[in-house]
Amino acid sequence: MRLLALTRDPLDEPGLAAAVARPSSGAVVTFVGRVRDHAPGHAVEYLEYEAYPEMVDAVFGEIADETRERFAIDEVGIHHRCGRLAVGEASVVIAVAAAHRGPAFEACRYVIEQIKLRAPIWKKEVGPQGAVWVDTRP
C-alpha cells in the first residue's frame, strides 16, 4: 500500500494503520476525518472534494518528511479522498507509528493541521439550501 495517496476510492483506516507499523512500533495513532451532516446554520447532504493532484502529492511528501524530522516516529501515512462523499464517509485518514505514544499523538495532530493549512484541496457542501464552496478563512 502507498503511504501517501489522493484517491477517489473509499479509505481503508485499518489498512493504513497496518502499513505504517514496524516491529519497533509500540504505538499507532490514527486520525479519521469524516463528512458531518451539518455546517454552521444548515444541513449537509454530501460533500464534493476537489484537488490539485500533482501538488497534493508534493505537499503530502513535504509534510511526511517534516513529520519524520520533527518527531521520533517510525512511519507516517496520509490518505485523502476526492470526489463525492456521503455523510459519515472518511475524507482523510492519517496513521502514525512510533515506539511510544507521545510522539505518535503529537505527530498525528501536526499532520492534520498541516494538511488544513497547506494541501491544495477544496470542498463544496451540498444541502437543501444549495451548494457552497467552503471558505474557512476567519
Partner: peptide
C-alpha cells in the same frame, strides 16, 4: 506555493488557489 509578486517565466504552470479546505 510562492509569494504573490513572483515573476512568471515562459512555460510555467500558475495555479490560482482559492482558500484551502482540505481534511
Amino acid at each position: 506555493q510562492v509569494p504573490a509578486d513572483t515573476e512568471l517565466r515562459d512555460g510555467d504552470e500558475l495555479a490560482l488557489l482559492p482558500p484551502l479546505a482540505g481534511g
